[in-house]
Design a protein around this nucleic acid. Structure first.
Length: 111
DNA sequence: AGATTGACTGCAT
DNA sequence: CATGCAGCCAATC
């Protein structure tokens, strides 16, 4: 029943990134853990840009198998996301604004 | 139904 | 900046 989360992740535009907590908040009353857990349980024929989901630190999380986080970084760079010298992404700049998504689900007070 | 875990987050040390 | 602790919700055993 992670379809909800997958839907949110799928709404993330290329060149942007979202945090687990953010996705969790948009997806529903879930906890960031469920998001990570959901992505770890990604279906085989998924179409989910899971690499656009990172943690609050602006860094990719240490996933289940070694080397995977490196792949995520490459995918993000391929979409235009830039990493700092500390391997971190500027969430203030690449952070996804789910303002137009779901609409009512997110009362971000918009800018 | 109870216990454990998991790609998280925030605060304290 | 790294590590530790607790809250969080759902899935799995």
């Amino acid at each position: 029943m992670y379809q909800r989360i997958y839907s949110v992740v799928g709404n993330i535009p290329a060149g942007k990134v979202a945090t687990y907590g953010q996705v969790a908040g948009i997806a529903g009353r879930c906890s960031p853990r469920q998001v990570g857990y959901a992505l770890s349980a990604l279906p085989e024929g998924h179409d989910i840009p899971w690499h656009r989901v990172i943690n609050r630190q602006g860094r990719v999380s240490p996933r289940s198998f070694p080397g995977g986080d490196l792949v995520q970084r490459h995918l993000l760079e391929a979409e235009g996301v830039v990493f700092n010298d500390k391997d971190r992404v500027d969430l203030e700049r690449f952070g996804w604004d789910p303002v137009w998504q779901h609409g009512n689900s997110v009362v971000k007070g918009g800018e």
